[in-house]
């Protein structure tokens, strides 16, 4: 019958609407279920995943030594030309000439954090750091030199 169908429709509709309102009402009355992370406040507790790809860094030891041999594998592996390696000729104590790293220029503004350079590195000289706060006031600051001044190749790394 038309009239019963009419009122049934109204009843069903109102019921479905009330179900939705019950759900939002439930969360309104349970503020403890809030998921918000208050970011700048929780900076201390904020723990990123250890594999998180923040930016490429070159770890140095306390003696200011790194593991980069200047082989340019990362430069080749990088799809966007983010890494530029400048090498120099170094004369070893035994008189042999050897190619060594002079500067490793890393352009953060072009990096897509694809991890291909880390995979390609044969001597584990570069890693991804967990630092994700990259914003700077000047674009030129995104061009970074990864090896520290006067740093040396670690002994035993070839």
């Amino acid at each position: 019958m038309f009239i019963t169908e009419y009122f049934k429709t109204i009843f069903r509709s109102v019921k479905s609407l009330l179900t939705g309102m019950r759900l939002t009402g439930y969360y309104f009355t349970h503020p403890s279920k809030t998921l918000t992370q208050e970011y700048p406040d929780n900076r201390k507790e904020l723990k990123l995943a250890d594999r998180f790809r923040g930016e490429v860094v070159m770890p140095h030891t306390e003696a200011n030594e790194h593991r980069c041999t200047g082989c340019q594998a990362c430069e080749l592996a990088c799809p966007n030309g983010t890494i530029k390696i400048i090498t120099k000729q170094e004369i070893l104590p035994d008189g042999k000439k050897k190619k060594r790293l002079d500067t490793m220029i890393y352009n953060l503004s072009m990096c897509t954090f694809c991890n291909l350079c880390i995979v390609a590195c044969p001597s584990d000289a570069i890693t991804m750091s967990q630092d994700f706060e990259h914003s700077v006031l000047d674009r030129s600051k995104l061009r970074k030199i990864l090896n520290k001044p006067d740093s040396k190749l670690m002994e035993g790394v070839e």
Partner: peptide, 13 residues
């Protein structure tokens, strides 16, 4: 605030 609490958020704080 009402919107935020219904949406599992905190809202302006």
């Amino acid at each position: 605030r009402v919107a935020a609490f219904m949406q599992l958020r905190l809202g302006p704080n």
